[in-house]
Simulated assay, not measured.
Amino acid sequence: MSGSVTEGWESDNTQFHTRHRACVSASTRVPDRLAVLLVEHDSDIARELTDAFVGQPVEVRQCTDPAVALLQVGRTCPDVVLLGPASGRLGAADFLAIIRELDHELPIIVGAGAGAGDLAAQAAELGATAVVRRPYQARELLGLLRSFAPRPDAVELRPMVIDLGRLRVDGAVPQFWLDGRVVALPPQEFVLLRYFAERLGAVLTRAELNRAVWGDKLGVRSNSLTVHIMRLRKRLGDEEHNPKWVKVVRGLGYQFTVPPAADTATGPAGDPTRTVPAQATPSERSPDVHTG
């Protein structure tokens, strides 16, 4: 086991190997990226977390066996260890106890899910840096990981992808995915869509939306917001006279929702693919909600 792992590290040009060389030479660590060792046996949880961190200044390396993870800690000097429940030659608590005997400063975040009260209690007693919920909330976890960087101010996080099921909005590139299809956006429509997506279901006033997209540069009587919402609806495949994505709430503003696929009559940007409309929910039939 150790031979194959050792060979892998010796030919490794990733951030982990950079940190290993820095540790060996006692030089300063690379400050603008994080190397995170994820000790996790659940492949689905590991994949979701790794996918969520794509494009971020964070490199995640997964290890399913805590015994092997001990070797990796010594050889790669990660910035942070993210430790989940584990079984095998060592358990999670055993791993934590051994690391703390050797290194009192290495940040170790323990993930404990529902019913893992024993692990959470053991982690606190054994010197875990923090205990968080598992499955992990990527957005909150990313900020916590950044706080353990040698220079947190040098680690520039990107806005994360907003995942709303059918709709995924990119974190920085002006584009979104609808039912798996990528759609490019002009910059201002992108800002508008992200603002809507971050406030799913909330009723937003025109004044608030104008400020979010244009700041103080837009005149009170400008119809730019109306035009941009109309274009955004078209890209989402919304019906002109009965929109499901961006609704007008009379006297208040706009409300953004993600309708089921059957509620969409046309695909993005006028894709002629048609589906059978679903029955409207009571809230959609309410006389207080109108299209516009």
Score class of each variant (00 low, 15 high):
7 E>M: 15
7 E>D: 07
7 E>G: 15
8 G>A: 14
10 E>R: 14
12 D>V: 05
13 N>Q: 04
16 F>R: 01
21 R>Q: 15
22 A>M: 03
26 A>Q: 15
31 P>K: 02
32 D>L: 10
33 R>W: 03
34 L>Y: 02
34 L>C: 03
34 L>F: 01
41 H>V: 13
41 H>I: 14
41 H>F: 13
44 D>P: 09
46 A>N: 00
47 R>W: 09
48 E>R: 13
53 F>Y: 15
54 V>T: 11
55 G>Y: 02
56 Q>I: 04
59 E>A: 10
62 Q>L: 07
66 P>F: 00
66 P>D: 01
71 L>F: 09
71 L>Q: 12
73 V>Q: 00
75 R>C: 05
81 V>R: 06
82 L>S: 00
85 P>R: 03
85 P>K: 07
88 G>E: 07
90 L>E: 03
92 A>L: 06
93 A>R: 03
95 F>T: 06
95 F>H: 01
95 F>K: 01
98 I>K: 00
98 I>R: 02
99 I>Y: 08
100 R>K: 05
104 H>P: 06
108 I>K: 02
109 I>W: 01
109 I>T: 07
110 V>T: 04
111 G>W: 00
113 G>Y: 05
114 A>I: 15
118 D>I: 12
120 A>R: 09
121 A>C: 13
122 Q>P: 05
126 L>H: 08
128 A>Y: 09
128 A>C: 11
128 A>K: 09
131 V>Q: 04
138 A>V: 06
139 R>G: 11
141 L>V: 05
144 L>I: 14
144 L>C: 11
146 R>E: 08
147 S>Q: 09
148 F>H: 01
148 F>L: 01
150 P>K: 05
150 P>F: 01
152 P>H: 03
158 R>S: 09
163 D>M: 04
168 R>I: 01
168 R>T: 12
169 V>R: 02
171 G>R: 03
173 V>P: 12
174 P>T: 02
176 F>P: 00
177 W>P: 10
187 P>D: 11
190 F>Y: 08
191 V>G: 05
199 R>Q: 01
203 V>H: 00
205 T>E: 14
205 T>N: 14
207 A>R: 13
211 R>C: 10
211 R>K: 11
214 W>S: 02
215 G>S: 14
217 K>A: 15
219 G>M: 08
220 V>N: 13
232 L>W: 12
235 R>A: 11
238 D>F: 09
238 D>E: 07
238 D>K: 02
241 H>A: 14
245 W>P: 00
245 W>L: 02
246 V>K: 07
249 V>C: 10
249 V>D: 05
253 G>D: 08
253 G>H: 04
254 Y>T: 08
254 Y>L: 06
258 V>P: 11
260 P>K: 03
265 A>E: 07
270 G>C: 12
272 P>H: 04
273 T>K: 02
275 T>L: 05
277 P>V: 02
281 T>Q: 08
281 T>W: 01
283 S>W: 15
285 R>T: 06
286 S>Q: 00
288 D>E: 13
290 H>N: 13
292 G>S: 11
292 G>V: 12
